Amino acid sequence: MAKIGLFFGSNTGKTRKVAKMIKKKYDDELVAAPLNVNRISAEDFMAYEYLIIGTPTLGEGELPGLSSDCDAESWEEFLPKLEDASFDGKTIAIYGLGDQVGYPDEFLDAMGELHEFFTERGAKVIGAWPTEGYEFEHSEAIGEDGKFVGLALDLDNQSGMTEERLNVWLSMIAGEFGLPA
């Protein structure tokens, strides 16, 4: 089994695209094939000590799921399956997709929701990302240190920066996950 689980929720496929970009950089022994959370069990998710997870922010700052008009279940329906799980000893890195121009008041809020969910259950979340280079009004994904709680991506307005940001972020988290930098 691979060392790191790679999971995402998506609606349009952009978050899946980023997961595939991550997977392309590592072999099967290091990073597992990316899986949509609507196709896995809680046991599949809990099998990993190290996790990279991704989410878009939809509508008014919501996690993807049926109530946010997704075509299929996603994080909204999956998280309740993990409600009673302990994430003590697990390390998680989060990437989030948002639209800072179209939704400047809830930019990346869903990433903040995932961060809160997993830290409340004991996970160590790594990969904080600077807010410089983004223009938005408010985000629930900003931690106490003034940084985003994970990698902030805007494929709608800054798609040309995605690969570089992803490479820098993966280098940042590499040591925590035992990955080559």
Rank of each mutant, 00 (worst) to 15 (best):
K81Q: 15
A141L: 06
N36S: 14
Y103K: 12
P56Q: 05
I53L: 11
F118E: 03
D154I: 01
E163V: 08
V168E: 10
F118R: 05
E73T: 11
L170Y: 06
D71A: 14
R39Y: 14
Y50G: 05
Y48P: 01
M161Q: 15
E137F: 07
V101K: 15
Q158W: 10
G65I: 11
W75C: 08
G150P: 08
A19K: 06
A174M: 09
S86L: 08
I22H: 03
G178S: 02
S139Q: 00
D109I: 01
A32N: 11
G96S: 06
L97H: 08
R121G: 04
R16Q: 15
F7Y: 13
L35H: 15
E73L: 09
M1H: 12
W129K: 01
T15M: 13
K81V: 07
T12P: 04
M1L: 13
K20Y: 09
D156M: 15
A72R: 12
E62G: 13
L82W: 07
S68N: 14
S68Q: 12
I4W: 04
L6Y: 06
Y26L: 02
A42S: 09
D88Y: 07
V18E: 02
E62T: 08
G9Q: 07
G133E: 03
I22L: 04
E120M: 10
H138I: 02
K25S: 12
K90V: 05
A141K: 00
E77K: 08
D84V: 06
P64Q: 12
K90W: 05
P34I: 02
A2G: 02
S41H: 07
P180S: 09
L97S: 10
E77V: 03
S171P: 00
N38R: 05
E77H: 04
I53W: 08
S68M: 10
T162C: 06
G61W: 00
A32D: 11
D71S: 14
K24I: 00
I4N: 03
A110L: 01
E43A: 14
G13T: 08
S67R: 15
T12M: 13
T91V: 07
D71G: 13
S159I: 08
D27S: 11
S86G: 12
G59N: 15
K17R: 13
E113L: 03
A42M: 03
Q100W: 11
D109R: 01
P56F: 01
W129P: 00
I40E: 05
R16A: 15
A128Q: 09
E144N: 09
K3I: 00
Y103G: 02
L108P: 02
I126S: 12
E43W: 03
A85N: 08
D88L: 11
G122Q: 11
G61K: 03
G133T: 03
